[in-house]
């Protein structure tokens, strides 16, 4: 039985003002409910542009995008209620404590005091930040900040979670905790769409991936199946290099 689609993208095209080259060139994708979907590609491939359009930060030029059946243009407020975002930046207030940050974002999401307290306690404990809840974030290590960055994105228990390189620059222990927690929330029904440059991580973590380059989807499917389909590929990283080349991508 085919899985129910939660994100449908058809012929999505976006060209930035002043650029001749489209950042996204007629891409089509379907992401099913409950998936952990990895959007992979070199720098400038179009990953962040795709996430920005899905989150409503950027307008598309052409194409159709639906999230949980809602149109991103006409029903953006409905979409915003069911999505969460973990940006690549540490999107927190450094001079506030974790508790103050989470209370702020939780209340902005409309969580009541009891629910907010329960979620805050639960998430801080799971992420190993319970003892640091009253310390200023600016005193935290990179790993602690990343873990808290994740909590701020999932506090309101979104149906769909967008993660833009959530494990970049963190130690192995923090990465392990983050991925374990993401697996937990996925099991509870949250669909995860994430971008990463860590191919090994994506291979283990994702149920489905798309490799995007120069604004076009090159391949899309289950990582294990994609590796098997391409002769000589032993891992997602070898597949990725085969498809995107070894040339440096600085821009």
């Amino acid at each position: 039985m085919p899985l129910e689609p939660i994100i449908q993208i058809e012929n999505l095209t976006k060209t930035y003002r002043g650029s001749d080259v489209p950042a996204l060139n007629n891409i089509s994708l379907t992401i099913s409910k409950g998936e952990i979907f990895g959007l992979l590609g070199p720098n400038g491939a179009g990953k962040t542009t795709t996430l920005s359009i899905l989150c409503g930060f950027l307008r598309k030029d052409f194409g159709v995008v639906k999230i949980n059946g809602f149109s991103i243009e006409k029903e953006s407020n409905e979409i915003k209620k069911i999505v969460g975002l973990v940006p690549q930046e540490i999107a927190l207030y450094e001079t506030l404590t974790p508790l103050e940050n989470l209370r702020f974002f939780g209340k902005m999401y409309g969580l009541d005091n009891d629910k907010l307290r329960q979620r805050t306690d639960e998430c801080l404990t799971l992420m190993g930040l319970d003892k640091s809840r009253n310390k200023l974030i600016k005193t935290f290590s990179g790993g602690m900040k990343r873990r808290l960055n994740l909590i701020a994105g999932i506090l309101h228990e979104p149906k769909i979670l967008f993660l833009d390189e959530p494990t970049v620059g963190v130690d192995v222990q923090s990465r392990n905790v983050i991925l374990e927690h993401l697996n937990e929330i996925n099991k509870k029904g949250t669909t995860i769409i994430y971008t990463s440059h860590y191919m090994e991580e994506a291979e283990q973590f994702c149920t489905s991936i798309a490799i995007i380059d120069s604004g076009e989807i090159i391949v899309n499917g289950n990582p294990g199946e994609l590796i098997r389909q391409n002769e000589g590929c032993t891992s997602l990283e070898t597949l990725y290099l085969l498809l995107t080349g070894r040339k440096l991508r600085d821009n």
Binding site: C55, G56, G84, P87, Q88, I90, A91, Y93
Partner: peptide
């Protein structure tokens, strides 16, 4: 600072909260 830290992105994803 709020924009550079990315907090604005979070706020923009919460309906009406950026204006608030």
């Amino acid at each position: 600072k709020e924009r550079d830290s990315g907090s604005v992105l979070r706020l923009k994803l919460i309906p009406g909260s950026y204006l608030v």
